[in-house]
Structures are given as structure tokens and as C-alpha cells.
Simulated assay, not measured.
Amino acid sequence: MKTYSKLILVLCLPLLLVTLSGCLKTNAQDKDLLEQVKEKQEINWGVKNDTELFGLMNIKTREVEGFDIDIAKEITKRLLGEEGQANFIEVTSKTSIPLLKNGNIDAIIATMTISDERKKQVDFSDIYFAAGQSLLVPKDSNIKKVSDLGSENTVLAVKGSTSAENIRVHAKDANILELENYAEAFTALQSGQGDAMTTDNSILLGMSEENPNFILAGDNFTNEPYGIAIDKGQDSFVLEVNQALKEMKEDDTYAVIYKKWFKEEPK
């Protein structure tokens, strides 16, 4: 009888552990994020480290810099006060939402486009940057607009991004080559592995600024507004972030940050 009881215990133990683990995860997700960040006096932001103008690692200082970073710092200050700490954790298009769902980061501010598909997994703040998708091509390219792309052309995009999805709609005959990040995609463009690179115009402008031999081809062919992604069920945190963005625009703090990085007034 004792042997039988031990056998039952051995068989049931893994199930018990899985159940307990699931309960702990649910309890963590049920905690109010706003209360948590105010208690620890810090917000962990998921940001890009390879995106000119928005989130780029400064090799000398070993600190990430850009528009997204400054917006995150300002929101942190408004939510937590002068003593509040903004921590920055590198994410990519593929890793950002999993890291958010796992609790490794509190929010994502990483040139993330608001989309219906992403809204199934996360909530978004109000728009903090109005962007649109475009093409980056060599200066001497015959590609002047997205409709010029045909079956003889290869377009470079980043894996897991909405840009990769959109280009298949707007250039149905073109070949699409997806790479891990913007740096790899641009390197591939420079080496002739593709005829054009596609993503948000804001990101491509940064690349063009650093590399004058490459230019944007034509106008934007999509409307791709950026939002701050926050896990589902954290309504109070979303409201506070939106209030901070609203106040930043009203008192011109947003305009100052915008002009610092883009050298023009916000559109």
C-alpha cells in the first residue's frame, strides 16, 4: 500500500508543480503595474539599441540615446518624480512582446507600430510619434516609389516587423529577404544583397543622414503610428502614461525633445 501511495505521489508531483507555477504567474500578472513601479521607484523600458535617432548605443558612454529614450525619461520623471529611475533593456522586433509578457520589462518604447494584431497581445498608449513606411535605396537607383518594385527586385526587411508584412501587400511581385535587425538589413543593402530596404521613414531618415549615398524613395506608402506597448490589464499605468504624454505636448516638452532629434517642429 505504501509503495502504491509513493507511486501516486511521484506521478502527481509534476502536475502539482506546473499548476503552482501557473498560479504564481497569474498572481504576478494580476499585480497593478503602476503600484509596482511607484513602490520600486523605477521603470524598466524595452528599447532599441540599433536605431538611429530613436535608440542607439553610444559606444563611448555605453549608454543608449535617442528620441524614444528621452521620451521614456520624461514619462518616468512625471510618473515617479525627480528621483524616479528609467532603466533601459535592449529589445528587438521579435523579443519585445515576449519580454513584456514575461515581466522582464514594464513597457516597450521601441519604434513599435500600433497594429490590430499586436493589440491582441498588448495595450498601447496614445500615439507618441506619427510614422509611415518608406523605402531606402542607393542614390543612383531607378526605384523612385514602391510601385517600381517588381519580380526582379529584392527588398530587405526586419523579421517580425509590420514592415515585412506591409511590403508584401504593396509590392506583391518583389522578393522579400528578412534579417534579424536594422543593422543587418542595411549592411545587406550596402553589399548589394537587396535593391531597397523598407521600414518606417523615421528610421530610414536616420540611416540616410549617416550615409548620404542612400536616400528615401518617394512618399510614405503606409500610416504607421508609434505607441508605447504595455501588458494587458494594466489600465491605470496606461492612463498615467497617456496623461504624461498629453502634458508634455501641452507644455512644449514634447516639441523640445522632437526638435532635438529631428531638427524640425512636430507634425
Rank of each mutant, 00 (worst) to 15 (best):
F54P: 05
A131N: 11
A229K: 05
V256D: 14
M207D: 03
Y4P: 00
Y254N: 09
N58C: 10
E180C: 00
D251R: 05
F88M: 07
T95Y: 06
P138H: 10
V146R: 01
E117K: 11
T76V: 12
D235F: 07
D68V: 05
D50E: 14
K120G: 09
A130C: 04
A110Q: 06
K2R: 13
E90K: 14
T26I: 15
Q36M: 13
G55F: 01
K40D: 13
A110P: 04
I257N: 00
L179N: 00
I127N: 08
D30T: 12
A188F: 08
E184Q: 13
L7F: 07
L99Q: 08
D148T: 05
A183P: 02
Y258V: 02
V64I: 15
H170G: 00
G192K: 08
G55K: 03
F88Q: 03
V169G: 04
Q36T: 13
K139F: 07
A229Q: 06
S161G: 07
P266G: 10
T113L: 08
V155D: 01
E247G: 02
L33A: 11
C12H: 05
K260W: 10
E39Y: 14
V155G: 03
K259W: 11
V146P: 03
K38L: 15
E209P: 00
T111S: 14
I228P: 01
K2L: 01
T51M: 11
N166M: 11
I105M: 08
L179D: 03
D200A: 10
R168K: 15
N175L: 09
E90G: 09
E65C: 03
E178S: 14
I215N: 11
E264K: 14
N213F: 04
K120S: 08
K73P: 10
E90A: 15
K6F: 02
D116H: 04
P266M: 07
I71Q: 05
L239S: 13
I127Y: 03
E65Q: 05
T187V: 08
E117Q: 12
N175I: 05
K159G: 00
L15K: 02
F54K: 03
V47M: 11
S161F: 08
L204S: 05
S236T: 15
N181F: 03
R168D: 01
E180H: 01
K263N: 13
I203E: 04
E240L: 04
S96M: 12
E247I: 15
G81M: 07
G81P: 08
M248D: 08
V64A: 09
T3L: 06
N87A: 09
V238W: 00
Q190G: 10
I59L: 07
M1D: 09
D140R: 04
K145D: 13
S93N: 10
K144D: 04
E42P: 09
K267Y: 05
N58W: 12
L149E: 12
